[in-house]
Amino acid sequence: MIIVAVNGETHRVTAGVTVAGLLAALQVPTEGVAVAVDAAVVPRTSWDRVVVDGDEIEVLCAVPGG
């Protein structure tokens, strides 16, 4: 198991899980969202990237504002 943070919350997840797998496991919506790992955007085409221990993952979407 590895420990990652998703939107500020700590999760223990199986080693080798991908970004896409992590979002699915956490039931995070995947439409209209964007992902950053350690303050760098991970394009949707690269969601097969494996997350590693200590990754800080942010998943953002549009909300009313401005």
């Binding site: 939107n7 995070v28 919506p29 439409e31 209209g32 942010e58 998943v59 953002l60 979407c61 549009a62």
Partner: peptide, 17 residues
């Protein structure tokens, strides 16, 4: 029209879009 970007919460939709 403007929108803001915020952390998604499980079950939270993209209603404004």
């Amino acid at each position: 029209t403007t929108v803001a970007m915020r952390r998604v919460d499980a079950g939270g939709g993209t209603g404004v879009l």
